[in-house]
């Protein structure tokens, strides 16, 4: 099962920016991640799929330390995650995250949601932070919503604001945790389009999703997880047409 060569040519895009080495994670007695080994190259887009409860979300939440891994090492852009809060903060500054339930700050306007971190963490002057926030809002195609509150926006708009908020810190890596799962069907496309534009711009991305169309079109590699383990990794053209593992075949037959 795990005799896959992670250093194979499927991530030839550059040197690795994220390296997970023998990572285990437990919730009480339940092992959520079992011996996870994966490298993600710069500018690579990795899509993680798998049944619910397979550890996909836990995997990416470990990368920015929203969850603490119990064994193994995680290195992000040369910084190893440890209990040292300075290391954690450094990794979080370089890592943007988009959540399933948006998690915008409801008491702040869209503009303030986006400028908060640059101003508070990077000490960017207000005018400069707002100008780049407006640029980001234009990139996700909702500059006219800048002064509204999250509660006034549709789900799709909120998720695009969340993407802009994550990008405002100019991260080197973007993590997406089922970004379209809480959206009405007609709003999924606008969010996926924004993500695709981002991928084309060369952003390193790890995307947990159930959107197989997105995986096919945008992913450099698809990772299939089940029961806390990585079962199969491959470029989408092989992964979807010629899966190697029985577990993968079963999963694909259920969803396609």
């Amino acid at each position: 099962m795990t005799n896959i060569d992670y250093a194979d040519a499927t991530h030839a895009k550059g040197e690795p920016i994220i390296v997970l080495d023998s990572v285990d994670k437990f919730f009480g007695d339940f092992q959520a991640l079992k011996d996870i080994n994966i490298r993600v190259g710069r500018q690579e887009v990795v899509v993680v799929i798998g049944p619910s409860g397979s550890g996909k979300s836990t995997l990416i939440r470990c990368i920015n330390r929203l969850e603490k891994h119990d064994r193994g090492t995680i290195v992000v852009d040369g910084v190893e995650l440890s209990d040292d809060i300075k290391n954690i903060q450094e990794v979080r500054r370089e890592t943007g995250m988009v959540f399933q339930s948006f998690n915008l700050f409801p008491h702040l306007t869209v503009l303030d949601n986006i400028t908060l971190a640059p101003r508070q963490v990077r000490r960017t002057p207000k005018a400069e932070a707002e100008a780049s926030a407006m640029d980001l809002l234009k990139r996700v195609k909702i500059p006219e919503q800048a002064h509204k509150y999250p509660g006034q926006l549709s789900g799709g708009q909120q998720q695009r604001v969340a993407i802009a908020r994550a990008l405002a810190m100019q991260p080197k890596v973007m993590l997406f945790d089922e970004p379209t799962s809480a959206l009405d069907p007609e709003m999924i496309k606008e969010v996926l389009d924004a993500m695709e534009v981002l991928a084309e711009s060369g952003m390193t991305m790890i995307v947990v999703t159930h959107e197989m169309g997105f995986a096919r079109a945008v992913a450099d590699r698809v990772v299939f997880m089940a029961d806390g383990q990585i079962v199969e990794v491959g470029p989408p053209e092989h992964f979807f047409t010629d899966p190697q593992e029985d577990r993968t075949k079963l999963f694909l037959s259920q969803i396609l």
Partner: peptide
Amino acid sequence: VPKGQVEAAQAVGLSPWKQTRLIVLPQALR
């Protein structure tokens, strides 16, 4: 205050004190 609010504040790199002061406290007081 939902747990996701703290996670979002952590994810954008706010320090623990700023997570409390800028995100949790205003919502909690409301």
